[in-house]
Amino acid sequence: MSAEMEEIRLNLGHIELAAHLFGPADGEPVIALHGWLDNANSFARLAPKLPGLRILALDLAGHGHSQHRPAGAGYALWDYAHDVLRVAEQMGWQRFALLGHSLGAIISVVIAGSLPDRITRLALIDGVIPPTSGPQDAAERMGMALQAQLDLGNKQKAVHPSLDQAVTARMRGLVAVSREAAELLAQRGLMPVPGGYTWRSDSRLTLPSPTRLSEAQALSFVKRIACPAKLIVAADGMLARHTGLLEQLPFSYELLPGGHHLHVNDEQGATLVADCFNRFFGIS
């Protein structure tokens, strides 16, 4: 990571979040939001390649070194959006850009569509809208989510006997990443426990959502975006096959080689993403 990175903590009143701060104090303010079960180290390769930007890379609630939400609370999209807006208040940023990957990109779209006057630019990596469903699935989904919440108390987090085994497990996760990416995420995501290591992330993050937006509801956020927006689609990622969705977007996207975590998997991917976003932010 860049020697210019600063570790900070932000007390929002309802929760305390950890973050990495990159770039010059007078740079264009940007809040960077990582993907599900990742952490601020998701931007460790990319942020130093975006000169002139003041990038605050958060550990979202329940991830990395940020606090978990209190007992009985959940991790809904609007709660993340509220956290980000409170972070902007802490930083004194009335208007700011958003840089989001996957879940972080979805949160960014929700904020930019809800409060379009607050967001100056939107830089997205392989994510736009959350998974959607029709009204006919509502009761079944709610039942599944409630039962999963009840069952969670009987489950124990996996303990990996060694750091290497924990890194290997992350490489083979739901979304595979390179060893280099897994090691970066492990630096911030693992903690020692009796018998080895486990991930810091809140177990409630793995619970299914009790509700989902319809596609029309989700796209309503996209349609209200008023700032310049740029989406990077990973050729081997999660969006490339959703051509119907991509054709409905009111902003441009660029297809780049690599997987869902192309910005952190290796230096080549980070450089390609940085070149695209430097042009987008007007950085020479």
Rank of each mutant, 00 (worst) to 15 (best):
R9K: 12
H14E: 09
L17A: 08
D26A: 04
W36I: 00
D38L: 00
N39F: 00
P48Q: 15
L60M: 05
R69V: 13
P70E: 15
A71G: 08
A73T: 07
L77Q: 15
W78H: 12
V84I: 08
R86V: 11
E89P: 00
M91I: 07
I107M: 05
I107Q: 02
I111H: 05
G113C: 01
P116W: 03
D117A: 11
D117V: 01
D117F: 09
G134W: 15
Q136T: 09
D137I: 07
M144N: 15
M144T: 12
A145K: 04
A145I: 00
L146S: 14
A148D: 09
Q149H: 07
L150C: 06
N154V: 07
N154G: 15
Q156C: 04
Q156M: 04
H160V: 03
A166F: 10
A176E: 12
A181G: 06
L185F: 03
Q187C: 07
P194D: 13
G195W: 11
R204G: 01
S209M: 14
L213C: 15
S214G: 14
S214P: 09
E215P: 14
E215N: 06
F221D: 10
A226P: 12
C227Q: 10
P228N: 03
A234K: 02
G244R: 07
L246A: 01
L249K: 05
E254A: 07
L255D: 14
L256N: 11
L256G: 02
H263P: 06
V264E: 12
V264R: 06
Q268H: 13
T271V: 10
L272H: 12
A274T: 01
F277M: 04
F277D: 10
F281S: 02
F281Y: 04
